[in-house]
């Protein structure tokens, strides 16, 4: 058989196979199973496509909230300690109008409920990413419950409300900023029309006479010593903004204990030498110095969580932490976190 006729024969066989057109890359990838799709297909859209059946009451949500959410968001969703406040800044009139009025008038800090137009966004986000240090650990009904509690805090639903896949569409009609979004702008499409127009004037161009804004004096050193953030050679040097203070010591190698604390997420809320959200480790060491049984007591507190010793921001429980790791961390902390 000539070369061209064998090619034609091969083509004929290929065309006869039904899969040829659909799978240009044989051996690459495989079909996803229904169970796999169900495990990952967690998104919920504004039209509630993807929303699982379930329900949760404001009362159940409050219990969950106290246990899992207050550390970062405060008892009433008002906390600005870790993240921006969730609740506040909306009125009954806003719920009627679907527009948050203080967004027009004020230069106020914006809460989540002042911004969000779609309740599906909150359900989807709580379900996929909350609590912050244990995402995807809430059951479907728990997500409904926590969201019901938040909606009650925002005075969108009454205290005896039960949020469910059936009642959620009604709540959407009461979202305070539901009419507050706009899509008529040129920044969605790569060929969109710009909203601001400048011209490339080259000579004697009109400019205002004065400098409109300069860096405030107090902010000059707020980013550390700029001298150390520049190269020791080249056309310029960094300005010395150390203000006469000695340069901080070079970053020491991370100790195994600190590495453990980092890997377990402790350092998200704690630091060794200062307060962040929770107390500094040296502060804790000083408090418990010489106290008999301090180590086992603290190890239990780390696992169970607690509030009151260092203020009103609770520490969330850490049930997944092993006893060995909790013990090692506490021994390191009470020895001053060296």
């Amino acid at each position: 058989m000539s070369r061209s006729s064998s090619f034609l024969a091969a083509m004929a066989i290929a065309l006869a196979l039904p899969v040829a057109a659909q799978a240009p890359f044989p051996g690459i990838g495989r079909a996803a199973t229904p169970a796999e799709i169900a495990a990952w297909d967690i998104d919920v859209r504004p039209d509630f496509k993807g929303l699982p059946k379930g329900s949760g009451s404001v009362a159940k949500g409050e219990v969950l909230w106290e246990a899992k959410c207050t550390a970062c968001h405060g008892t009433f969703g008002e906390s600005n300690e870790v993240f921006a406040p969730l609740v506040g800044g909306t009125t009954k009139a806003d719920i009627e109008a679907g527009r948050v009025k203080t967004l027009v008038t004020g230069d106020v800090s914006r809460t989540t409920f002042m911004k969000v137009a779609t309740i599906s966004t909150l359900w989807d986000y709580i379900n996929r990413a909350m609590p912050w240090n244990a995402p995807k650990s809430l059951s479907t009904d728990e997500v409904y419950s926590v969201l019901a509690y938040l909606l009650n805090l925002a005075e969108i639903v009454p205290a005896d409300f039960v949020l469910s896949n059936e009642t959620i569409a009604g709540v959407q009609k009461r979202m305070p900023n539901r009419n507050g979004m706009q899509r008529e702008h040129g920044l969605w499409d790569v060929k969109g029309k710009p909203d601001v127009r400048n011209v490339a004037c080259m000579k004697d161009c009109p400019v205002s006479a004065s400098v409109a804004s300069v860096l405030p004096e107090h902010a000059k050193g707020a980013h550390g010593n700029l001298k150390e953030q520049n190269r020791p050679v080249g056309p310029a040097r960094g300005i010395d903004t150390s203000d006469g203070k000695a340069a901080p010591a070079a970053v020491a190698a991370v100790s195994p204990s600190l590495a453990l604390a980092q890997s377990k997420g402790c350092m998200a809320c704690h630091a060794v030498d200062k307060r962040v959200v929770g107390p500094g480790y040296q502060e804790i060491a000083a408090k418990y110095k010489g106290e008999a049984g301090a180590e086992s007591k603290l190890a239990a507190k780390v696992k169970a969580g607690g509030v009151g010793t260092w203020g009103q921001i609770p520490m969330p429980p850490h049930p997944a932490l092993s006893d060995a790791d909790a013990g090692a961390l506490v021994r390191w902390i009470v020895s001053g976190a060296p």
Binding site: V116, S120, G180, M181, L187
Partner: peptide, 23 residues
């Protein structure tokens, strides 16, 4: 349809002078 996820409905939305957010 669009999803209006957290980072396109709560963050990464641009507040305009009329009090609306560009999404």
């Amino acid at each position: 349809e669009e999803w209006a996820t957290k980072d396109e409905a709560v963050h990464y939305i641009d507040l305009m002078p009329d009090g609306r957010h560009r999404q």
